[in-house]
Nucleic acid binder design. Structure first.
Length: 256
DNA sequence: ATGACGCCTTCCAGGCGA
């Protein structure tokens, strides 16, 4: 079974790209983030034509998450409890024998911006929420975490320590989540590799290797024991057939 | 030092992203 996460940076703008990717990679379950459209504008029919069901938690213009799946999914949680005012950023479903959550974690903007403490509070609420469902054995949470887990995951390495995405406060929140028994599937399989999932559109960052690894798939031990490979699909960060890519690459994992 | 690119929106300059 192939599970995936992808921040698409605008579903409507990315539709041709997403269809190309679904046909090429044939994932079974996909968490999408940054849909940037109203739920009534979600193109269910286009996905059905490709054999995918969709559960959507979205809002006009900003944020928005969804789960695509080959077999129908049942929604478990729409929105992070207590933090609904921060936007449509969490959706958890039951699908294919898994509990599968997709998250678009807040950005925080800058260390001195009011969004930064809101980001930390959002992660505290995420930890509390995940602690409440930790009894679910086969569980995945994937998404755009907007935290760089470790120096290895930033193109600047430890020179980025202390800057936004790389502060001790953010990394402590990330650790509070992994401390619940959730493991970064990519880092588990490849402890010393440096691959990125996001590159700035500006300044040729992609071709200069100036990226971050912020798009993650975390799993409980029952999932970790099944994971055989994880790929950060940088082919789909490139312009393809005249279409512009998201600034994030898809990430997918193959499970037994 | 700054902006750089691309998305969104009561249509178009401005907010936002990471």
């Amino acid at each position: 079974m192939r599970i995936a996460t992808w921040n698409v940076n605008g579903l409507r703008a990315r539709m041709d790209f997403i269809i190309h990717w679904l046909k090429s990679r044939a994932p079974d379950v996909v968490g999408l983030q940054e849909l940037k459209l109203s739920e009534e504008d979600f193109p269910h029919d286009d996905f059905r034509a490709l054999g995918y069901h969709a559960v959507v938690h979205a809002e006009k213009s900003w944020n928005g998450v969804a789960v695509l799946s080959r077999t129908p999914a049942e929604a478990e949680t729409r929105g992070l409890p207590g933090r609904e005012d921060d936007g449509a950023r969490l959706l958890r479903v039951r699908v294919a024998g898994l509990h599968f959550a997709t998250v678009y974690c807040p950005n925080g903007k800058t260390l001195d911006h009011p969004d930064f403490p809101r980001k930390l509070a959002w992660f505290d609420a995420l930890r509390d929420y995940l602690a409440g469902v930790r009894g679910d054995a086969a569980s995945v949470i994937g998404g755009d975490f907007n935290i760089v887990p470790a120096a290895l995951d930033a193109w600047q390495g430890d020179a980025a320590d202390g800057s936004i995405f790389c502060t001790a406060e953010e990394r402590a929140r990330y650790r509070s989540i992994t401390d619940l028994g959730l493991t970064d599937l990519y880092r588990h399989l490849y402890p010393n590799e440096q691959k990125f999932s996001w590159w700035d559109y500006r300044g040729g960052a992609f071709h200069r290797g100036m990226g971050l690894r912020i798009d993650l798939l975390l799993g409980t031990p029952a999932v970790v024991s099944r994971v055989r490979s994880v790929e950060i699909d940088r082919e789909y960060r490139k312009k393809k057939e005249g279409n512009i890519a998201s600034d994030h690459a898809p990430v997918f994992a193959d499970l037994d």
